[in-house]
Nucleic acid binder design. Structure first.
Length: 584
RNA sequence: GCGGCUGUAGUCUAGUGGUAGGACUGAAGCUUCCCAAGCUUCAAACUCGGGUUCGAAUCCCGGCAGCCGCACCA
């Protein structure tokens, strides 16, 4: 029986949390010092599994020809001033002094476009005679700023202010020029980054779902906004997605229908939603308990124009685990403005065309001797004029340092120029599929969790199961333990994560492996000593076959990549009455 | 950050103003055992700090953490 929200909602999380700690998936950090909310450690099994999830993601994006980069977690303030995080990542809170409720100050007053500063907010609160929505009191505390970024100092005291990044994306935008050159200046191209992001959450709860230091998987795809089609869209036109659009009900339709019906704004967005869906399913997220939900207009981040969240249904409710956002040119434009670096893309046209136009040219050799030190500046001012302004005039009047100067015609002329135009500059648009690794990790655990009469089986996809094969000697017999240990070492070297266990009954050992989702268990018995075969038992079916000892790592590897157990050897007879018994 | 409730081995729990018992798990052994069997032995805890008291895990205050509500949530 798979536990669902209906059958047993509350304690599935408790069971998972307790199992995860006991068996080494994850647990709260700093426990010997009392712990700090919002920080979690990953244990040995957790890291094996998390790395498999990351690797799966990496492989999917690599096969879309994305490359991975890595950038610092500490960034100077200027980065976030440009990106908007300094401004938009800050809220002002006020407390009601009589009932002690906290409120977002800008929600209590009508700012009418005024900037959200503590002074304005205080003023508005008293001007508007704002009352506490809960108790009606007018006694509020002063607005206190709350920025969700962790601040730090770069270098010795008094030097630069830095922040821990709230997302890895900015590191990619910083590097647009490098990346563009790497991709030989051909759009579209994409870059991925994994790493930690930091958000000083007011009240982190719900374990791995709300962290102050989180693991992110982020991809940024740079595209030419004039290109409406996506090259590989045909590959995914019939992929069905559960969509919950901004307006309307949840529907399950193909990517093609969604784009043609205007539900999803572009082919490229739909394509990466499908890619996200495929990734989620392949690591063990239940497609029937997931959907894409479109952000409402006022819900979107400051940089986005269209966002679809990938949500998973957990016992705690629908939870965002990934987002696919159309960021437009927001980020690159913001950094162009902030840094004055040229983060544009040069689109070459197919043919070179000659553009003729008339421009105003200053006559510098004549200007110089007459106007001396003013000449240079004046030349620039003159050349900003259009040919229509000056054509046929005896003199023109320009503004120079607040003075008007009449410049006779001998100092300028209209000239016809020919310019060879090979293309144009523009700011690429960005599509961002980004995910919270910790949330995916937790969702996979919960969606894989199954329990029947207190017997727990984690039905993880083999590719992400932390342990691939349990290895047991049936009896405490030195010949069997030696053979089992040899198999263990062989698997370890062969890259099939093994786990040796000779403690307790054979059933208990199977139970231990089922609990952590190990797909196969290998048992050495007396038959092994005679003919060199071992039994291989499959987690989900509990069926066993005898498989040859030779190249066991290879056989298990093929089973893991989808082989059918029956094709690998003869079935082992099983005692009917002992199947699934707990006692006796 | 505010308010309410809570905090005993790895996990789940019993308990009293005189420093703690159980179950499961784990380890060692017995059992010749293919689906959490049994037996023996062992290991392992009162969230942290301060106060009251002869004596505090127990009462009081505070910190931290968890749950719920408010708020927040790129």
């Amino acid at each position: 029986m798979v536990l669902t929200k209906e059958s047993d909602s509350g304690d599935i999380t408790e069971k998972l949390v307790s199992m995860s700690k006991r068996r080494g998936f994850y647990w709260p950090s700093f426990e010997i010092y009392g712990g700090i909310a919002g920080f979690y450690d990953y244990g040995p099994l957790g890291m094996l599994m998390r790395n498999s999830i990351t690797d799966t993601w990496r492989r999917i994006y690599r096969s879309e020809d994305f490359y991975e980069i890595d950038t610092p977690t500490v960034n100077p303030e200027s980065v976030f001033r440009s990106s908007g995080h300094l401004e938009f990542f800050t809220d002002y809170l006020v407390d009601c002094n009589s009932c002690h409720e906290s409120f977002r100050a800008d929600h209590l007053v009508d700012l009418a476009g005024a900037p959200s500063t503590p002074e304005t907010l205080s003023k508005k609160l008293s001007e508007e005679k704002t009352r506490c929505p809960r108790c009606g009191s007018r006694n509020f505390s002063a607005p206190r700023p709350f920025n969700l970024m962790f601040q730090t100092q770069i270098g010795p005291a008094g030097s630069k202010t830095g922040y821990l990044r709230p997302e890895t994306a900015q590191g990619i935008f910083m590097n647009f020029q490098q990346i563009n050159r790497f991709f030989r200046e051909k759009l579209p191209f994409g870059v991925i980054q994994t790493g930690r992001g930091y958000r000083n959450e007011i009240s982190p709860r719900q374990g791995l779902l709300r962290l102050r230091e989180l693991n992110m998987l982020e991809a940024e795809l740079f595209i030419d906004p004039s290109e409406k089609q996506w090259k590989d869209f045909v590959k995914i036109t019939d992929v069905k997605l559960n969509l919950l659009p901004r307006s309307g009900k949840q529907t399950t339709i193909s990517a093609d229908e969604a784009v043609r019906g205007g539900i999803i704004g572009s082919e490229v967005l739909a394509y990466f939603m499908c890619l996200t869906h495929r990734f989620m399913v392949s690591v063990g997220v239940d497609p029937s308990r997931s959907r894409f939900r479109q952000h409402a207009k006022d819900e979107m981040a400051h940089y986005s124009t269209e966002t679809w969240d990938f949500e998973a249904e957990l016992s705690s409710g629908w939870t965002e685990v990934a987002g696919v956002a159309y960021r437009g040119s927001y980020d690159l434009s913001a950094h162009i403005k902030g840094s004055s670096a040229d983060l544009t893309f040069f689109r070459k046209s197919g043919t070179e065309r000659v553009e003729r136009k008339a421009i105003v040219r200053a006559n510098r050799p004549k200007l110089g001797p007459v106007y001396k030190e003013k000449a240079k500046e004046m030349a620039l001012l003159i050349e900003q004029l259009s040919p229509e302004d000056v054509r046929g005039k005896k003199s023109i009047r320009i503004q120079f340092n607040g003075n008007r100067i009449d410049v006779p015609a001998e100092f300028f002329s209209v000239v016809e120029t020919e310019e060879k135009v090979r293309g144009e500059k523009f700011v690429p648009h960005v599509v961002e599929p980004s995910m919270g690794l910790d949330r995916i990790f937790f969702t996979v655990l919960e969606h894989s969790f199954s329990e029947s009469d207190g017997y727990v089986v984690l039905r993880l996809p083999p590719r992400i199961a932390p342990i691939k094969a349990g290895v047991f000697p049936l009896l405490d017999d030195s010949r069997m333990t030696e053979a089992a240990l040899a198999i263990h070492d062989e698997l370890l070297v062969g890259g099939v994560e093994p786990y040796y266990d000779d403690s307790g009954s054979i059933g208990r050992r199977y139970a231990r492996m089922d609990e952590v989702g190990t797909p196969y268990c290998i048992t050495v018995d007396d038959v092994t000593l005679k003919d060199g075969t071992v039994t291989v038992r499959e987690r989900d079916s509990r069926k066993q076959v005898r498989i040859g000892r030779k190249d066991l790592a290879g056989s298990i590897g093929r089973l893991l990549s989808g082989g059918r157990l029956e094709d690998f050897g003869s079935p082992v007879e099983q005692k009917e009455e002992s199947m699934g018994e707990k006692e006796g």
